[in-house]
Design a protein around this nucleic acid. Structure first.
Lengths: 241, 241
DNA sequence: CGTATCATTGACTATCGTCAATCTCTGTGG
DNA sequence: CCACAGAGATTGACGATAGTCAATGATACG
């Protein structure tokens, strides 16, 4: 009866059977979305909240000159747009990077979920981790050179995917193009390619046909001075008094 | 009886007299903090939430090589660390940039505030706008060259300060050094200086002795393709059904 | 008036982007 | 089975953007 969302949130907040049942009954009705389609667009004001259950999606913006910046990866178990409850209009677009399965959750169902304190806390936790991840992205873009930046990003992806059980033997599916990676890292495709070549030469990674293997996790972390604190993956100990 | 917080939040969520009274009674006991002191440090787990009532503070991280990245400016009316309710440990440091006045709000008082739905919504709104601002910061760092980047940042600052009534004649107090600006923009101090020289030469701004004047707002916005949507400054229209 | 901090400048270098060509892989139709 | 097309990856040559180093000016403050 467990789904990807329950598995993710349950590590944070101790759920009772009633919480789990409510979550299980909410995450139903998956639909598939092809690669490179929009899930929700800037300016829209959707009535459903979207949850990714498989595949990769991303938050991004397109600038007037046509260039694009991706600023967040949405992995299985991630909510796309919880914030439209408060900020009525989307200020960015969410698109799939690979084929995805998505669950559309009606507003009302979310309101029912947030009546359960443990679930509300877990959802709030999820938004705050998104924010923290963005802060680290700013650090990454502002103060690290291309090689360190990409290494740091890969460490983050490895940690996040491990957390939802999608890594085996330091290998995970990464079904996206180098152009998409460069839009993530704020680099040109050419430079992105050179960074990847460099990592291959250093025997740090292999990456082909949508699968990425980290050959030397410790070296990659050291190289990018990766510290996973900001992901707040450990078990949560709430103080509510 | 109005304070900077009430003024800011009241534009978002319609407050009743009881809401306002509660807010007024919460924001008491200001203390002053000198420039360049930490309000709360990475790794700490404070029992109070901090609210800036005057001056400039910032969120930042220091990297192992000693370089620093500032990723958010905290202006009067901004909360520093609402998130420690959920993420028990700070993952970054908050320091003053100028002398500040700060209010320390006990955990319990925040819990009491969040029992009022209008206030809870306004606080949630504030965190989501922080997040949205961070997304724009990533775009700014990733896909804009130094000149546009700085121009965009100045437009954002102007808009945010206008929103709390701290701008007159397109002029505002910006009591920080060029080194701090460069840590914000991910640039070297030398390059930061050159960008400012360029803007002065273009008659876009003046900036000296801690005061910044935007001489041509429209040109600055056009130059950086500034679109204030992401600040969500308009009046909030909640859908709660 | 001396000192410390900040701002400014020039010369040089490193990092990264652009352009354009080529290569590789994959899937398709004959 | 092979030729071909298209997308993505890779490479080299070159140029633009931004960093580093080091010296010099300006300003503020005791």
């Amino acid at each position: 009866m467990e789904n990807v969302l329950t598995r993710k949130l349950a590590t944070l907040s101790p759920f009772g059977p009633k919480d789990k049942e409510l979550l299980a009954n909410t995450v139903i009705g998956e639909r598939t979305v092809k690669a490179h389609e929009d899930i929700i667009r800037e300016g829209e004001s959707p009535d459903d909240v979207h949850l990714i259950t498989s595949g990769f999606a991303c938050r991004h913006k397109i600038l007037p000159d046509g260039s694009r910046q991706i600023f967040a990866y949405l992995l299985p178990g991630d909510f796309c747009d919880l914030h439209v409850f408060i900020l009525d209009v989307m200020d960015h677009t969410i698109s799939t990077l690979s084929p995805c399965t998505v669950v559309d959750i009606p507003r009302k169902a979310i309101l029912r979920l947030t009546e359960r304190p443990a679930i509300a806390r877990a959802l709030w936790w999820a938004t705050l981790v998104d924010e923290s991840t963005l802060r680290e992205a700013v650090v990454n873009m502002g103060r690290r050179r291309a090689e360190e930046r990409v290494a740091h990003f890969l460490c983050e992806l490895l940690a996040r995917l491990e957390n939802v059980g999608l890594v085996a033997d330091n290998t995970f599916s990464l079904p996206i193009t180098q152009a998409e990676l460069s839009d993530t890292m704020g680099l040109s495709t050419v430079h992105m390619n050179r960074v990847l070549q460099y990592f291959r030469g250093q025997k740090l990674i292999t990456f082909s046909r949508g699968r990425l293997k980290v050959l030397n996790v410790e070296a990659l972390k050291r190289f990018s001075s990766f510290n996973p604190n900001y992901l707040h993956l450990g078990r949560h100990k709430p103080k509510l008094d």
